[in-house]
Computed example of a mutant assay.
Amino acid sequence: MPRHIPILFKDPNISDEIRERTKKFVKDHPLASSAVQVLLATAIMGGTITVAAAFPGIFKLIGKHEVSEKKAKRERYQKLWRSFNNLKKKNIFEKVGEGNEGVIYRFSDKGRAMVREFAVETLELEKPKRWDGKWRMVMFDIPEKFKSRRLIFQRKLSELDFYQLQKSVWLHPFSCVKEINFLRDFLEIKPYVEIFELNEMSNGRALYYFRDLLKKHA
């Protein structure tokens, strides 16, 4: 296998919120679906691509067979290197300079847009140890000219396991203000989305929908 100069990722333009969300996602999901997913997480968290590193804190790629750690590390490195070169050709990364530890890269403007998309794709609600007994209702009236953004927002609510009370009214028992605000800012739909907190819920279908989840966090 050819030796490559280590690649270091340093981008001060990545927000602390996105870094922390990425770290949590990596911790909660030890297996990644693709090398690109691992690469983006590595770059967002300011990691390094090097054959000598064990990629601490970075989730492993899903494989069909168990292999030795040495071989697995080499295969991960090769996949990450190929993914890095492919994204670099697409102008996702830009070179900043060189140091004693290797070549330094950061995300380009195009790459930062990809980071925001990654942050939305991996966005998850924090599950409390114990439910506080309150309900969160998300209501929106997003204009037709923003139809594509509305569809993305609705799809993400569904992925986050919200219950759809009405076409533009969704419900969840767990706190979601930070996550909804993140989506509103990313999609630029803040004026059209409202979040309400309810002390009671009388909708039987909603209660039934969340029955198992609430039992786990009672």
Rank of each mutant, 00 (worst) to 15 (best):
Q164R: 15
P12E: 05
K73W: 06
T48V: 14
A32K: 02
E200F: 11
P143C: 05
R76V: 07
D132S: 00
R211V: 14
G46P: 00
M45V: 15
E69N: 10
L8M: 06
A54V: 13
V138I: 11
E194G: 04
Q78Y: 01
P30C: 06
E121W: 13
Q154K: 09
I189L: 03
S34N: 13
K10T: 15
V36H: 03
R82H: 12
L40T: 01
M1S: 09
P6N: 09
N13Y: 13
K215N: 11
N13I: 08
G204K: 01
R184L: 08
M137A: 15
I44C: 12
L207H: 09
E159L: 12
R150T: 05
F9I: 04
D141I: 05
K215T: 13
A53Y: 04
L80Q: 02
D11M: 03
R112E: 08
K10I: 15
A35R: 01
Y209E: 07
E17P: 01
T42D: 08
L80R: 01
E121S: 15
D141N: 08
I180W: 03
K216P: 02
K156L: 02
D212C: 06
W135L: 02
R76G: 09
M1Y: 03
W135E: 05
A54C: 14
M114T: 15
F182E: 00
P173W: 09
V169A: 10
L31M: 08
